[in-house]
């Protein structure tokens, strides 16, 4: 792995060792409606180049939809999202800025082997010859401690390995912006911690701008530079991770530190009768 840290705002590519500029992301007054349902409500924030930004919120709060706007998979109803100053919904932006999204499910191609999953991007974009592609793929697998799985089918892998393969596939793209959608969901605490470490290491080593969508408090506390909290489609908090330790907003406190109260009225209907 490359060791020399890059200057702020630059990414030292893990494969070519060439420095490319890390990119910033700006979300301005973003709203999104699906029919009559408003999923995002006037969301505004920015992410600095080289920063790890964690976006938290309960299920259904619009986190993944927001992520899809940043990579251009969804179009805003109103407002604007820019990546490196360019409109994120434009196809040209995807050609100019290398963005990699690690999906919650991994979204690996089950018809291809792990090796071919990783090789797809450089092959399709004719980045280098087959020997160069092999070097990139094996290097990415090594970084993610996935030696020996290259010929396996994604369906033969565990949940944690699938996530790591998805990260490796993103890494082969040599991204300037990495986005993770719930990278630690459905994983045991040890594997979650490993994934968190990987995200932090990749940012530290390669200075990649990173946006993580999660409802994992430990991940946000441990690896983020800043945390935003999205509830019911609105960004209700934005600040350093230390803010999460003693939240003043009762909704945020309830989300981050839920208390189990068996006397709560909602549990009454769960009583079983013989």
């Amino acid at each position: 792995m490359p060791s020399s840290p890059s200057p702020a705002g630059a990414t030292r590519n893990p494969f070519t060792q060439v420095e490319t500029a890390a990119v910033g992301v700006s979300v301005e007054h973003l709203s999104k409606n699906f029919g009559s349902l408003q999923v995002l409500k006037d969301v505004t924030f920015s992410v600095e180049p080289g920063e790890i930004f964690v976006l938290m919120g309960p299920s259904g709060s619009g986190k993944s939809v927001l992520l899809k706007h940043i990579v251009g998979l969804e179009l805003p109803t109103s407002g604007r999202v820019t990546v490196d100053g360019k409109d994120a919904s434009s196809e040209a932006t995807r050609e100019q800025v290398r963005m990699a999204l690690v999906f919650q499910s991994g979204a690996l191609f089950n018809s291809l082997s792990v090796y071919d999953n990783l090789a797809l991007y450089p092959r399709e974009h004719q980045i280098t010859d087959e020997a160069g592609i092999r070097e990139k793929v094996m290097h990415a697998l090594k970084i993610l401690s996935l030696d020996g799985v290259d010929q396996k089918s994604p369906s033969d892998l565990s949940g944690g390995m699938k996530k790591r393969v998805a990260i490796a596939r993103a890494l082969v793209m040599e991204p300037q912006l990495m986005l993770y959608d719930e990278p630690t969901s459905e994983l045991d605490p040890v594997t979650s911690a490993t994934i968190s470490e990987i995200i932090a290491t990749l940012k530290q080593e390669y200075h990649v701008t990173t946006i993580v969508v999660s409802h994992d408090r430990e991940l946000a506390l441990n690896i983020s530079d800043r945390v935003g909290i999205l509830m019911d489609g609105a960004l209700i908090s934005l600040g350093p991770p230390s803010d999460l330790k003693a939240p003043t907003d009762p909704h945020i406190a309830e989300f981050l530190y839920p208390k189990i109260d068996l006397q709560h009225p909602r549990f009454k209907n769960l009583e079983t009768t013989p």
């Binding site: 990699a100 999906f103 979204a107 797809l120 399709e124 793209m173």
Partner: peptide
Amino acid sequence: MKVYQEVDALETMNIPPARM
């Protein structure tokens, strides 16, 4: 592929599904 987000993954890789 669409339901399991493989098509979305292609688009984020800037590989047009129409082409591949």
